[in-house]
Design a protein around this nucleic acid. Sequence first.
DNA 1: TTGAAAGCGATACCAT
DNA 2: ATGGTATCGCTTTCAA
Lengths: 338, 338
Amino acid sequence: MSTIKDVAREAGVSIATVSRVVNNGPKVGEKTKARVLSIMAELGYRPNENARALVTQKSKTLGVVIPDLSDPFFASLANGVDKVARQNNMQLLLSTGLITEESERQAIRLLLERRCESIVVHSKKLSDEEIIEFANKVPGLVLIDRFIQKIADRCIWLDNEEGGKIAARHLMSLGHQQLACISSKYQIDDPALRFKGFKNELTESGLSLLNQHIVEDEPNLQGGEMATQKLLASDTKFDAIFVYNDAMAIGAISTLEDNGYRVPLDVSVIGFDDVLLSRYSRPKLTTLHYPIEEMAEFAAQLALGNIKDVTAQQISSGYKYIPRLVKRESTSLHSFSK
Amino acid sequence: MSTIKDVAREAGVSIATVSRVVNNGPKVGEKTKARVLSIMAELGYRPNENARALVTQKSKTLGVVIPDLSDPFFASLANGVDKVARQNNMQLLLSTGLITEESERQAIRLLLERRCESIVVHSKKLSDEEIIEFANKVPGLVLIDRFIQKIADRCIWLDNEEGGKIAARHLMSLGHQQLACISSKYQIDDPALRFKGFKNELTESGLSLLNQHIVEDEPNLQGGEMATQKLLASDTKFDAIFVYNDAMAIGAISTLEDNGYRVPLDVSVIGFDDVLLSRYSRPKLTTLHYPIEEMAEFAAQLALGNIKDVTAQQISSGYKYIPRLVKRESTSLHSFSK
DNA sequence: TTGAAAGCGATACCAT
DNA sequence: ATGGTATCGCTTTCAA
C-alpha cells in the first residue's frame, strides 16, 4: 500500500504539500493540487489512519462493550451506537466478551489501547468502584443500562421498577384482580426490579399480593413454557400474567393455549422489552417498550460530548428512560362473565 | 494517558527495555522486569495500539462490511466474524452503510485506511470488476453471500437455488400438488434464485407449473400478509405455499388462519432462513436453515488465512453452503380427505 | 541484559 | 504557495 512519501515523490512535491491536499488544506496551488490528486488516484493511495491517530491523538473510533451480538437486544444497542458513529464520521469498534468481571475489564482495556476516546459500556459484573475509576480516567466513557450514583451524569438507564408499575396499572385497569407473575433468575437484577415495581403498585392499590410467582431459569421460550406449566400445575386461579420478557411471554401464551386457555379472553399476558418477536406472535404481544436503540444513540452522543444542556435532575439521577406501554392483542378487559 | 517514555523514565530504564517487558520479550533481568511491571501498574500504562499498528504493520483488527446491525441476519453475520476475531486476539471493526454502490465502496475504503488486513465483505451493489480489483489489492478480503467466478476461492455463499429445490421436494414428498409461491422484489436477487430452483424441481417432477406466484415488495410480516390476501382473492386452489422468507411466511400463516384455513392441516407453509422468529411462531415454522453465522465464521477464518487445504472444487465454485431443511410444524402430509 | 537510534506514516509548525 | 523537520508511541536491529 503506497504511502504519502510515494505520492510526494511521484508528484515531485513535499509530503507536507500532499498532506495539505489530502486534508483540503488552504494555500495549495490549483495546478499542484490537481497533479497530486491524479497521482493519488493512480497509486490508489489511502491515508493511514493509524499514523493519523498517532499524531492527531484522535482515533475516529467509537467503542462499544457488550457481551456479544447474538442477542438482538445487544445488536440493537450496537446498532444505535453505530448510527451515531456514522453521523460523526467515525467507526464502530466492538469489544465483546463473556459476562464476567475479567472479560468486561479486558474489553474496556482493549478499547483504551486503541485510544478510543468515546466508549459506551454495558457492564454487569465490574464493581461500581472499578467503573468509576475507568470513568474518571476516560471522560468519554458512558454507562448504559446501569446506574451508579457517583457518575450519574454518565449513566443511561431504564427504570425497570417503573415498568413493573405500569404493567400493574394496565392489568388492573382492565379489571384483572388475580395476577400471576413469571420471572427469571437471570444473571442480572432486572427481573427483581420489574417485579418489585409490579408488586408495590398492586399493594398500593389494595390488591394484597400476587397469587403466584414462578421463577424460571432460562429467560426464553422454553423457560416461559415450563414456568407456565408449573403455574397451571399449582392450581392457582389467575386471570392475568406479568412475564419477565417477551420471549418467555410467548412461551407462556403457547402453553396456555395448549391447555385450552384463550389469550386474551381467559387470560391476559403482558411481556417486557418489545423485541421484534412481540409483533410476530399471535396474538400480538402487549408489552413494555424498552427503547434500547434510542438509549444507545443518546449514550453515544453523550460519550462524544455532544450533549450540552444537562439539568440538575440528570446530574442526580442520570438519563433515565421510562418503558412505554405498547397495547397489542394479548391483554384485554377481564370478562366477568366467567 | 501515560506512554512508554513515562514508564521508562520512572523505572530508570530505556524504552527498549520497557518494550521488551510489555511484549514478554526474552533477555530481561528479573529485577528490572519486576520494577518495570510495578511502574506500569502504578501509572496505569496501556500500550498505544495505533503506534504499534504503525510500526508492526498489523492492525489486530478484523473488518466487516454490512448494511447495518438492525437486521438480525446481519447481526448474526457480524457475530460470527466477531467470534473468530476474539479467538485470534483481534477486534471487530464495523463498516456500515446503505446498500448503494458509493456506500459500499466507502465502507471498504475506511477499513483499508485502518490497514485492516482481513475483511469480510457483504456487498450487493458494487460491480464484479470493482470487487475483483479490491480483492486483488487486499489478499485478506473475502466475499460473503455472493459468488464471483474470478475470485471463486474467496467467495462464501449459499446455494439459494438448491434451497428452492429442497423446498419443492419436501412439499411434494408430503403429497402436495397445488403449490403457490410468495416472493419479494427485494433489492437483491436471492428471491429470484430461490424460486427458480423451486420451479425447476417441480417441472422436473412433472408438476407443470406453479398455480400462483405472488410478488410483494416488503419481505416482512406485512408483506406476507398482503401477498396472502392477494393469493386468496385470486381464488386459486392451493395446498401449500413456498414463501421467500420466514417473516413473510409468518405473515402468510397469520392471514391464512384469519381466513379460516388451518396450518398445516389445510395448507402447508414453508419459509426460508430459519431466523429466531421461526421457532417462536405458532405453528413453529418449517423452513430452510441459512447458516449465516457459520458461514461468517468460516469467512473470517479464510480472511485470516487460516484455511489451508483448498480443493479444486472450491477453487472453481467457491465455498458453497447448502441450506438445510428444518422440519417443524407448519408443513404436514397433504390430507386427501378434503 | 540493556541502551541508542532508525523508522513506521502521517500532521503541523516554522521557514522561505 | 511550498518545503523542511520535529513529533506522535512504539518495535526492532545493532552495539555495547
